[in-house]
């Protein structure tokens, strides 16, 4: 039997920690199309993702999970729709220390939500920093309804990344159950 693949997309604003997140759990070195940053305005970091990050978790002989990280900079948003095709779910990474990016995070979330009705959650990243906003404040600022999960995250910590991925998968199971009971009712 051919190996089956599924994918989860990790998106979010520039510098929110998407590459770091994938790097923490991927079993291969993240294939990252990073590029040195030259524009002065964006010089808060050395390199940025220009096309995508690509990580892999082998489940067994028949199943592989791919993690795709989107580029954070707006001028690459033409990549988003391509990357979102066929995804199992998506994670919106938000830098909890930079409220100036919340608006964009919300916009990215709305954009992805419109691509496909797949489950998603929000990861409030960099919670290890003293400047991090409270998760519940972020929920309000990002206008997330109480049914949407927002989880504290530290992308550098494998355990935190695992929790985020697991919560997304639990969410997928819940939606499958809900869909099933709806179709049972209909039948």
């Amino acid at each position: 039997m051919q190996t089956q693949t599924v994918k989860i997309v990790v998106t979010g604003p520039f510098n929110s920690g998407k590459t770091e997140f994938i790097r923490s759990v991927s079993e291969i070195d993240v294939v990252s199309t990073e590029k040195k940053i030259t524009a002065e305005a964006e010089k808060i970091k050395e390199s940025t993702t220009v096309a995508m990050d690509f990580g892999r978790i082998t489940v067994d002989d028949d199943l592989v999970l791919f993690l795709f990280g989107t580029p954070g900079q707006k001028r690459f948003d033409f990549m988003w729709e391509i990357l979102s095709e066929g995804m199992l779910g998506f994670i919106v990474m938000v830098d909890s220390t930079r409220p100036e990016t919340f608006k964009e995070a919300r916009s990215i979330l709305e954009t992805f939500r419109a691509y496909a009705p797949t489950p998603y959650l929000v990861a409030a990243n960099k919670q290890d920093s003293i400047d991090a906003w409270d998760v519940e404040d972020m929920r309000v600022a990002l206008r997330l309804d109480p049914s949407i999960k927002i989880l504290p995250c530290v992308a550098k910590k494998k355990s935190a990344v695992k929790t985020v991925l697991l919560e997304l998968l639990y969410g997928i199971l819940e939606e499958m159950d809900a869909a099933q009971s709806r179709s049972d009712e209909g039948a």
Binding site: Q4, V6, V25, V59, L165, M176
Partner: peptide, 16 residues
């Protein structure tokens, strides 16, 4: 099969 697939993913990620 879909459900089993998600459960396998969960199992695998727990073990990382």
């Amino acid at each position: 099969e879909q459900k089993s697939l998600v459960n396998r993913l969960i199992h695998r990620i727990r073990s990382i």
